[in-house]
Simulated assay, not measured.
Amino acid sequence: MTLHSELPAGLEDQAAALYWEAFRGKLGKLLGPDDRGQRFFAATVNPKAVIAATGPDGQLLGIAAHQASGKGFCDAGVSALFRHYGLGAIWRLLPLAMLERSAPKDTLQMDGICVAKSARGMGVGSALFDALFTHARDKGLTKVTLDVIDTNPRARALYERLGFVATGVETTGPLRPLLGFDSATKMVLTL
Rank of each mutant, 00 (worst) to 15 (best):
S69R: 15
M98T: 03
G86R: 12
I51P: 02
I113E: 10
P47K: 09
R24N: 05
A136M: 11
G123A: 14
L61H: 11
G88K: 15
G86F: 14
A89L: 11
G37I: 14
D75I: 09
G58T: 14
V115L: 13
T107S: 02
A136V: 04
G121M: 08
A22S: 10
G25M: 13
H84P: 07
S69L: 14
L128N: 04
I90M: 12
D130K: 04
A52T: 13
S79P: 00
V45P: 01
L108R: 04
A136W: 07
A131N: 03
K26G: 01
Q109L: 06
A43T: 05
A15V: 07
K29F: 04
A119Q: 05
E21D: 11
I113K: 06
D35H: 10
R101A: 05
D130R: 08
L93C: 03
A127M: 11
G123H: 07
P33D: 13
S102N: 05
M122N: 09
G28E: 08
A89S: 14
R92E: 02
K48R: 15
L81A: 07
A52P: 01
G77R: 11
G25Y: 08
E21Q: 11
G88H: 12
Q14C: 00
A68D: 05
Y19W: 04
T134H: 08
F129V: 01
D35P: 00
L87F: 13
C114D: 08
D106Q: 11
L18W: 01
F41S: 01
K105P: 02
C114A: 15
A76D: 07
A68P: 03
I51N: 05
V50Q: 08
A16C: 07
A76Q: 14
Y85T: 03
L108V: 03
V45F: 01
L30K: 06
I113S: 06
D138Q: 14
P56W: 15
I90G: 01
R36H: 10
A49G: 01
A89C: 05
L31C: 08
H66I: 04
H84R: 07
A64I: 06
R24G: 00
L31T: 03
R36I: 07
G72H: 12
Q59C: 08
Q59L: 11
I63A: 11
G125A: 15
M122S: 07
D75M: 10
L99G: 00
V115N: 03
W20G: 09
T54N: 12
G72T: 10
A52K: 14
K139H: 14
G32F: 08
V78W: 11
M122A: 12
V45I: 11
G77P: 02
D35C: 04
A53M: 13
R39S: 03
G77D: 09
P95L: 14
A68W: 06
R92I: 13
G55W: 15
R137L: 00
I113N: 06
F82K: 01
A119S: 12
S79D: 04
A42C: 12
D35G: 07
G72L: 15
D34L: 13
A52Y: 06
F23K: 04
M98W: 03
A65I: 10
A52N: 13
T107I: 12
W91M: 06
D111Q: 09
D75Q: 12
L128C: 06
G62T: 14
M110E: 13
A97R: 14
P47L: 15
R39I: 01
K48Q: 15
S118G: 05
H84Q: 09
K71R: 09
G125L: 15
A17M: 06
